[in-house]
Design a protein around this nucleic acid. Structure first.
Lengths: 338, 338
DNA sequence: GCGAAGTGTGGCAACGATTCCACACCGCGT
DNA sequence: ACGCGGTGTGGAATCGTTGCCACACTTCGC
């Protein structure tokens, strides 16, 4: 544990201290190839006494692969992505890999820039919540395994781990319809990706199942951020005084909707029923607790990590695989008969 | 943008395609040293046509420093740490650095293991929410700049970016005392680190200021997790039926406290006033909104990143520096006269 | 007693990019 | 003509680790 003055100890230093060659020291330390027990012990002792830490950079250069997996996500501050990252980190860490997080803030250019640096770092695999097809193409074009998580690009040739948004949204909407609601607002912040599209699709399917006409003016497409969702909810309510229920397409939107309902002193569920996609802790802390579609977010991340590890190790080859995880609708107190 | 079959293009390939030597190609691409304008153009063209991405690993080996900053945090799923990470990532990213996240889950061994891998990766700097002194010592012993963020080890010889917990807690407690509360419970999950200690200290100072006797039985020290906090809150309430207010030492504890109050159908603030340290979005969504001490979490991370960048560049040298950020008490509806 | 198989070890060439360094060429002032 | 400073280029060493290969020594089996 003695700290060597300025320079860090190299394997050469260790070898010299143990009276062997660098090659032998390497074999003794890594366990690849022969090394006499006595030598092994001597080298190990020398290494610890010098505080030797092998240089992963040199090792990666030689082995031509690093132990870093790139993770591109949109916004760490959104608990959804944070949980996703946590799930990824846990599985990667257990397998001896580290996670390099690139936050693209929903910006395509930053996504591309991030991917370029990951490429430069020669990461052996990546997990992305894709924004544009370009980023994925760049990676796969260079032969880097990519796993898309949460959403998927249409033209995608990657593995993907997704939540069945359509199914979850259909269930939640059906619940409202069963309660007799006929005018159900749908608030969503994006319809570019499979998440927004899938949830809208589920909503429409449920309407069709119940033979309720789909009214596109009930769909409020809002800008990103809870503030925008709040404003849009207000407009929606003004435009449609006959609304009896609202479906919020994700946790951020739900936050905005909730704020607006609170501001207007609307009583939930007496005046209006509410369901949200993407359950979050606050939804059980507010009164009434919000009925929500829970996504297995951490498992989503974990599964993505497993998939990318399998690709990296070559254990999994061939056709892109898509893994679907089922969300679960949880009825709480924010919904009641129309 | 042509993808080269199997192998990735090296600078040698680019050089050959441009009809120059690797050295010249390197100079043309990096801008270090002479390179004729015409050559520069040719090399650049060759690089893009081959889809050349410089190998950061080789570059790091040669330059003996990488562009990866290690970030060791306790729990990405806690919004506090997620925000912290987001703040860090933003500043690092803008400076051209990437963030390697190690989640230690509050476990000292995992912290140490994480630090060891960071060391192996030859990161030029690290940002940690420290658990044990050992990890910091290991890093500083190897000459790696460390910035402690959120909390600080007592024996620490590192830079640190901290929130003035004591001050914030004092203000929040004083607020309760001014409202006439005399029996104020303090629920906290740890007293090993400067955060827990500081908040307790602020609580006690406020009591002293108001000449209210400190009663250690009002301090509930709970295990980690909201569930534990809820249970402990229940016990605290049973033990002290005369309690008129509760101070929750952080967002997780506050969650547990809130759940328990809800479960018992206690009305806030009629039956009990509540303040929390570490403001979170849910605290304004519940009814009544929770009075809380807001920490500038993202700025905390950003500042830590700035500090570590300054150390790495050598722009900042000498004595460890400690930066204090001031929290802000926000009065909301969860507190009223005793 | 001799090849073969099994143990160990050190030398050396990579991995891919980056610098020194030497050198070459040009123009220009003396 | 000569030297000199400014441009521009290629050669070669280097970063720290690994892994192939050659070689040495031991131990067997026949």
């Amino acid at each position: 544990m003695t700290a060597t003055g300025k320079r860090r100890a190299t394997i050469g230093d260790v070898a010299k201290a143990a009276g062997v060659s660098p090659s032998t020291a390497s074999r003794a330390l890594t366990g690849h190839g022969y090394a006499a027990a006595s030598v092994k012990k001597r080298v190990l002792a020398a290494a610890t006494s010098l505080g030797y830490v092998p240089d992963d950079i040199a090792r990666s250069l030689k082995r031509r692969t690093s132990r870093l997996v790139g993770v591109v996500i949109s916004d760490l501050r959104n608990p959804f992505y944070a949980d996703l990252a946590a799930g990824i980190e846990e599985v990667l860490g257990a397998a001896g890999f580290q996670m390099v997080v690139v936050n693209d803030d929903g910006d395509t250019d930053r996504e591309l820039a991030g991917v370029r640096t990951l490429l430069a770092m020669r990461v052996p695999g990546t997990i992305v919540t894709p924004l544009s097809a370009a980023a994925g193409a760049l990676l796969t074009g260079q032969g880097v395994p990519v796993v898309e998580v949460d959403r998927q690009m249409a033209e995608s040739q990657c593995d993907a781990v997704l939540v069945d948004s359509s199914h979850g949204a259909r269930e939640a909407t059906a619940h409202l319809l069963e309660l007799g609601h006929r005018r159900v607002g749908f608030v969503v912040d994006e319809l570019e990706w499979t998440t927004g599209v899938g949830r809208l699709d589920g909503y429409r399917r449920a309407l069709r199942d119940a033979r309720v006409r789909y009214d596109s003016t009930l769909v409020a497409r809002v800008g990103f951020g809870a503030g925008n969702a709040a404003a849009a909810t207000g407009e929606l309510l003004d435009r449609h005084p006959d609304l009896t229920a609202i479906f919020a397409a994700n946790n951020v939107v739900a936050e905005g909707v909730w704020q607006e309902l609170q501001r207007r002193r609307l009583r939930v569920p007496a005046d209006l029923s509410l369901v949200a996609f993407d359950d979050q802790p606050w939804m059980t802390m507010v009164e009434p607790a919000v009925s929500a579609v829970r996504q297995p977010v951490v498992r989503l991340g974990a599964k993505a990590a497993e998939l990318v590890l399998a690709r990296m190790s070559g254990e999994l080859t061939g056709e892109p695989r898509t893994v679907w995880l089922e969300p679960e609708f949880i009825r709480r107190a924010s919904t009641r008969e129309a």
